[in-house]
Nucleic acid binder design. Sequence first.
RNA 1: GGGCCGGUAGCUCAGUCGGUAGAGCAUAUGCCUUUUAAGCAUAGGGUCGCGGGUUCGAGUCCCGCCCGGCUCACCA
Length: 497
Amino acid sequence: MSLEDELFEQRLDRVAEIEALGFRPYGQRFDFTHTIPQILAEYGSHGAEQLEPKVQVRVAGRIQTVRRMGKAGFIHLSQGGERLQVYVRKDAVEENDFKLYQNLDLGDLIGVDGYLFRTRTGELSVHVEKIHFLAKTLLAMPEKFHGLEDVELRYRQRYLDLIANPDSRRVFVTRAAIVNSLRRQLEQRGFIEVETPMMQPLYGGATAKPFRTHHNTLDIDLYLRIAPELYLKRLIVGGLDRVYEINRNFRNEGISTQHNPEFTMLEFYQAYTDYRGLMDLTVEMLRQTALDATGGTEVSYQGERLDFGNVRRFSMREAVIEFWKGGERPAMEQVKDPEWLLKHSSKAVPGEALVEIFENHAERSLTQPTIIYDYPVEVSPLSKNKPDEPEMVERFEIYAAGMEIGNAYTELNDPLEQLRRFDLQLAMRERGDEEAHQMDEDFVRALCYGMPPTGGEGLGIDRMTMIFTDSPSIRDVILFPLLRPEGPIGVADKLRR
RNA sequence: GGGCCGGUAGCUCAGUCGGUAGAGCAUAUGCCUUUUAAGCAUAGGGUCGCGGGUUCGAGUCCCGCCCGGCUCACCA
């Protein structure tokens, strides 16, 4: 018999023993007096004399380590990412409780009643008077010292990762703090949270390949949304002047350390402002989110210090000049000159050429949080033109750690111009560009009812979380990143035996 | 999709030139009433990712495939 089978059998036998002792192996409600983090916060600095008179506690946790010494032993219970030692001795508990203690395995969930004390080495511990059994583990826990290191196992069995690696838990707690911070900041400014379709008959709001699905009763093909944008702007038309949505987008494209097929975006739209207004808002929101997530505005990411208290701003053309790599730095007249742009790029259109040159020269240099503004119209089908320079649009992106973490613009609200942009996209589609926008006539109809001047923005929650948790891969900040299916697992057969 | 790296006990990892598959943790048994990566003794535990090939002999060399990581391309 393999070790794993042997262990499984042993533990199934132990379930029976636990029952024979009068305990339920998959127990009942447990009304604790404290969580482990609460005990550590409240009594962590109390000396032995301060624990008199006795402080009675009732706590639950998962068994992380056991050190048995004959008629006594120490157990570390873990809960909420922290651990508390409990001390069981034969003469302090009932006979059945001691027998139960002797049958405990690493990973079992138990509760204890007892009083707090300091051990000889000074560790705050619970002197156990009663043990409660809450749930049995049948499988072996990861190694106590190294934790679970195999990244594939960490992603596939995130529950084990969370049990074994406190740092992993911390990442997802911080992620929740980030989302919470953004929600609070938006709510304080009068935004309301909405939910728009994730299954859409037409996809739009971004340039990306979609996932397809099918509804049987209606017998229609649908797309998983690549962005909520066009629905959120319909709501602006409808007079919901400040809306936001935090949820998943789906893009049927590559997977990398910065891309997961489903990812979380915050999109928000504010009527009567423009991209300049959004820049100021964004700078403040990033500062506050950094503060809420990490406790400071300076964030350490992969050895670099990123200062979210000081977000730089460059126009795209300025950035090309500022971060020019190799050779002589160009002048502003050159960066504005269509012929110069085409000469320095593989693209056939000046606007696309500018973007390519920007990406080649500047993008990777944008380690510090930076706003890049004023984009060419060709790459921005939904943004409003600059009044004095119609080939450019009022748009900016936010970069940090060399990644794009946000995208914002003054929304195009002229239905005639929007129709023209859709027609341009259709022409690109006919030339074979799968990612070009589809025509969304209902959206154009909505604009025909009048949409107020509006600023809209999207922030990538996963990438922000990477930065604020110092995580090198997007998979480290997504609880269950997409992986290929793993094949036979074998637990069902073992349980049936 | 291309390139590079990896997959050996439940976990963390060694494995030399191709010659009987190892350690620590974990598990089992015994001893141990303030230990803390507890300790001591004994024992069990392997589809070396999968399938071919070369060879007297393959964890090791060759080919194909699967899974994962990094990276380039694409993308946010």
